[in-house]
Design a protein around this nucleic acid. Sequence first.
DNA 1: TTGTGAAGTCGAGCAACACTCAGGTTACTT
DNA 2: AAGTAACCTGAGTGTTGCTCGACTTCACAA
Lengths: 194, 194
Amino acid sequence: MAPADRESERPVRADARRNRARILEAAEAVFAEQGASAATDAVAERAGVAIGTVFRHFPTKPDLLRAVVMSLQDRIVAEADAMVRDQDAVTALFEFCSLIMSAGVTHRDVFERLAETGVQARVSDALARLRSAVDVLLERARDGRAVRADLSTDELIALLAAVCQEAIADDWSEEFRRRALDLLFDGIRPPGSR
Amino acid sequence: MAPADRESERPVRADARRNRARILEAAEAVFAEQGASAATDAVAERAGVAIGTVFRHFPTKPDLLRAVVMSLQDRIVAEADAMVRDQDAVTALFEFCSLIMSAGVTHRDVFERLAETGVQARVSDALARLRSAVDVLLERARDGRAVRADLSTDELIALLAAVCQEAIADDWSEEFRRRALDLLFDGIRPPGSR
DNA sequence: TTGTGAAGTCGAGCAACACTCAGGTTACTT
DNA sequence: AAGTAACCTGAGTGTTGCTCGACTTCACAA
C-alpha cells in the first residue's frame, strides 16, 4: 500500500510551482505591455523558461489569459471581502458596489487588452465568488430598510455586474459611476423611502 | 475637368458591390456555424471568391467581424427605429428597452461567438446610433412625468446598454429581463410617483 | 549516499492562419 | 473599340499556437 495517500496525489514539485508563478507574473507584465495578442514566446522568455513549459502549465493560450484574469480578480475579491468584514453600517452595500466599480476601472487597461483576444473578464464571475459576502450585506441592508424587501441576491449581483461591466468597457468617470449607482439604488429602495 | 465630380469619387464597380455583399452573407453564415475563429478561407470559399478579394474588401479579420456585427445591428436598429415611430404612449420607452433587450438575446449566439475572437458587439454602439430616437422617447416620457426630470439621455443609454449587455452575456430569461427593467425603471421614476 | 522513476523541462519543428502582391481579368468611360 | 483603372486571383510569406521525443531534475527510499 502507498505510504501516504493523503489527498491521493503527490505534491507538486517545487520547481514546477516556482515556474508556474514566474510564468503567471511574466504573463501579466507582457500582456499589460504589449496587449493580449503578444506571442507566448515573449512570456516564456521573460519568465526564463522554454515554450514547452508554458504550455505544460497552461495547455492553451486562453487558459493562460484566463489564469491572469483570475489572479487579478483574486486581489479585488480579497480587497472587497476584507471591506465587508470591517463595515457594519447600512450604507456598506453602497460602498461595496462603489469599491467594486472602482477596482474594475482601475485595472481597466489589462481587462481591455485581454478582451481583445476574446478572453472575457466577467465581473459577474468575480461577484459570484463574493456571493456570500453580498448575501450578508444585502440582508443587513434589508433589515435596515435600506433596500426593498423583494430584492434577491441574484438580482442585485446581476444588476451590479451589468453596471460595473459597462463602466469598465466605456471607462466611466467617477462622477458618472456615482450617478449610475444612485440611479440604480433609487430603484432598489423600497417604495416611499426617498 | 472631370465630367461628373459629384461626390468627387467614382461609383463602385458593380461586381465589387456584389462580391462585398456575398462575402458579408457568407461570413455571417460561416461565423454562426463554426464560430468567429473560423478561417477566412472558409468565408472566401463559401462566397465563391478568392482570399485576396475578401481581404480587399475587409483589410483585416477584425474588420470583417466588425462588418458582420454592424450588419446585424443595422437590422435591430431599423426595427427599433420603426417601433419608435409607431408608438406614442408614455410607456413607449419601457417597451423600447424591452425590445432592445429581446433583440440582443435573440442574436446572442452570433454575438457570443464573435466575442470569442475579441470583437465586441457593444450594445452601447447600437444605442448610440439610436440616440435621436431615444431622445424623443425620453422627452415624451419626461413630459408625461414617467421618468425623473434630471435623467439625461446619456445616462439612460448607458444604463440600458449595461443591462442589455449583461442580459446577452448571461442569457437572462425573459422573466429576469423584465424584472431587471422594472428595477431599473423604479429608480428612474421621479420621487413619490410609485 | 546513491539509485530509481516519475514529473518536469527543453526547443526544434509542424500545421494553421492572417495577410501580400505581381500578374491576369473585368467593368466602366470616351 | 480602345484605354484604363478598379478589381480579382491564388500561390506564397511570415508569424503564431501548439506538439513531442529526448533530456534533466526533483522527491523519496533503501
